[in-house]
């Protein structure tokens, strides 16, 4: 008889908070599974990994992770995480949120954090809709897709998030779908290793709202669509990777480059100008245990 083995994911989760709020067929949990695998591979000290979420379905990820975890306000995970990282440079800080949270209400912070190369790994689960509030249109909802606030189909041009992040200076940009579990884990692992602003977009199904309202079937149907219509193009020109409604999805690692992080740029500037008068910021250190 084989011994009953513990699920390897368990140590990464707050098991006392399960089951999660996510619907059957939702892609968010899949990405979390990939994230735990990336954490295992990374061999990082998990006490030094912090996760920050905004609001929404993906915004709940932080609360399920057995890490220092922060569930902040709508759209503001990135500036919270920037403050956390600047104040405690020993931490590896991951922002995990959805397309609406990061690119609509949080859009200003997203572009500026990429521009200043804040040392954050940002995971954006893009399900093309606001799930938590009942399936409204987001900046990524493809033209013609139905959402509760575009009952006759969306008509606004969408954000091509990889291109936006590329243009803003992100040092690492990748996109996968929830079908590409190994690639997601690999990208997340690369993202965890790298410094600077890293952005991973994961296209994921929202069966309850987006798929149902658009008569696209269930989570499994969406996986088949991802499998059939995804095209891997590592290094693709991000201008060419925009998404149309239920059409092909270009996936891959699009950007991987080096640029001084916010902290490095700050340090260099002050060292150059102030010389010996510069007193670098030091981590507050481990708190004294009595």
């Amino acid at each position: 008889m084989s011994e009953l083995r513990e699920n390897p994911v368990n140590e990464y989760l707050r098991l006392d908070r399960l089951p999660s709020i996510w619907c059957p067929g939702c892609g968010i949990g899949t990405t979390v599974n990939c994230f735990t695998r990336a954490l295992t591979e990374s061999k990082l000290d998990l006490d030094k990994v912090a996760i920050v979420s905004g609001i929404g379905c993906t915004g709940r990820v932080a609360g399920y992770m057995n890490l220092d975890s922060f569930h902040t306000t709508h759209g503001r995970a990135i500036p919270f995480a920037t403050g956390l990282k600047l104040a405690n440079p020993d931490l590896k800080v991951v922002v995990y949120s959805g397309d609406g949270d990061l690119s609509a209400i949080g859009g200003n912070h997203l572009v500026h954090a990429a521009r200043r190369n804040a040392d954050l790994l940002v995971v954006c689960v893009n399900n093309f809709t606001y799930g938590m509030t009942g399936g409204q249109v987001t900046p990524t909802t493809p033209i013609s897709a139905v959402a509760s606030t575009t009952p006759y189909g969306a008509y606004e041009e969408t954000f091509n998030l990889p291109n936006l992040m590329d243009a803003c200076g992100a040092v690492y940009v990748a996109r996968w779908t929830a079908f590409h579990v190994r690639q997601i884990a690999k990208s997340m692992g690369e993202g965890l290793k790298k410094k600077g602003f890293r952005f991973i977009e994961i296209i994921a199904p929202c069966p309850t709202l987006y798929l149902r309202r658009n008569k696209l079937g269930d989570g499994l149907d969406e996986m088949k669509y991802y499998k059939e219509k995804s095209v891997v193009k590592n290094g693709a020109d991000t201008r060419e990777v925009g998404l149309d409604y239920h059409d092909k999805i270009v996936v891959g690692k699009f950007v991987d480059r080096e640029r001084p992080t916010l902290e490095e740029a700050m340090d260099k500037r002050f060292t150059d100008v102030l010389g010996a008068k510069y007193v670098p910021y030091t981590s507050p250190g481990k708190q004294p245990l009595a």
Binding site: V52, T73, G75, P79, F80, G83, A87, N88
Partner: peptide, 17 residues
């Protein structure tokens, strides 16, 4: 919006902000 939450992140990082 960013400044007023970045300080909260910094506090949880251990700084006075």
């Amino acid at each position: 919006l960013a400044a007023s939450i970045a300080v909260l992140g910094a506090v949880w990082g251990g700084a006075k902000a």
